Simulated scan of single mutants.
Amino acid sequence: MSSAGHKKAHLTLSLSSHDLPQVEVGDKIKPDTILITGESSHRDEFNLGKLLEVKGKAMKKYLKVKDGNQVEKGQVLAEKGGLLRSQLIKAPIAGTFHITDLDQGMVAIEQEKQGEEVKSWFSGKVTEVTNDKIVFEVSGQAIEANAGKGQPVSGNLHVISEVIDVLSMPTDLEDVILAVKEIEADIIAKADVLGAVAFISENWTDEAARLPFVTVSDIKTLKSYHGKNVIVYGDEQQLLIVADSDQK
């Protein structure tokens, strides 16, 4: 794992053929600056069965919506009662609900976006604009990831260098990027329900997980950044430690 500088780093935003850049080289970027516009569809697929801790078709009896229903962000998709509390699974985005694989417990929400805008989640300066990417210079430290998946998200970094399980993991994970040495499917599912926004790990085995992730060689090298604001961009295998002056 290598860094790309402590003061200035570069962040790349990939473009599709439908994306129209709204910035030019030299533009200064602030949070909520419109970077691109375009039309696209987004499909958010996740394992609802794992979140409910049930197998296969048993998931269906807990559903509060039907295949093909329109759902709103935050709407309850499924509810499972328990002795101490009820477990509610809510829609992460608005769109059309689909059961994609009942045997595996997989569901998806498909969202058609007309005139979609992508806004900046950081401060920086545009250094390059091409047909397939926009490159930004940002304040902070870029760390090279080994692998990754998912769109860019930012959050507060919580580093756990020792091995944990679903019983010993922290529960205060709202808007947190969780960095764990080894991560298993049950930890991923619980962290998702608790509000985590992304994961960093030395290994990744759950390709069905819906949240962004990157893998790094040694979690211990992130320990000094615990509590800092970071950006994870899985599809570009990027991890950015935001400079203190840019943290919101």
Rank of each mutant, 00 (worst) to 15 (best):
D132R: 12
I99P: 00
A147H: 09
I34G: 08
E45F: 04
A94Y: 09
L194G: 12
D186L: 09
D192N: 15
N47P: 05
F97C: 11
D67N: 15
P212N: 06
Q237L: 08
I89E: 04
L194I: 07
I143Y: 10
D192Y: 14
E182L: 10
I36K: 05
I93M: 07
L77M: 02
A208M: 02
S120N: 04
E112A: 09
F122M: 08
P212E: 05
I93N: 14
V159A: 12
K28W: 00
D186S: 13
K60Q: 14
K125S: 10
E45W: 03
K61C: 05
A191P: 03
D246Y: 02
G234D: 01
Y225M: 02
R210K: 15
S120D: 03
Q247P: 03
K60W: 08
W121F: 13
G56Y: 06
S2G: 13
D132L: 05
E182F: 09
D132T: 15
E184T: 13
G115P: 01
H18Y: 14
A108S: 11
Y233C: 05
V129H: 04
E24I: 05
K55Q: 09
K113T: 05
Q141P: 00
I219M: 00
I183L: 06
V118R: 14
V118S: 08
K133T: 12
K73V: 12
Q87N: 13
D19K: 12
K113D: 03
K119D: 03
G5E: 06
D172T: 11
K30G: 00
E24C: 02
S245A: 15
E202S: 04
N69P: 09
E174I: 14
K133W: 07
L13H: 08
E236A: 15
L11K: 12
K90Y: 01
G234T: 03
V159W: 04
K190I: 02
V216C: 03
Y233L: 02
K90N: 02
K61D: 09
A185E: 11
I36G: 04
K28T: 00
I160N: 10
E116N: 13
S14W: 03
E39R: 04
F97H: 10
H226K: 10
K50R: 15
E110K: 13
E236W: 04
S14H: 08
R210T: 14
V163A: 13
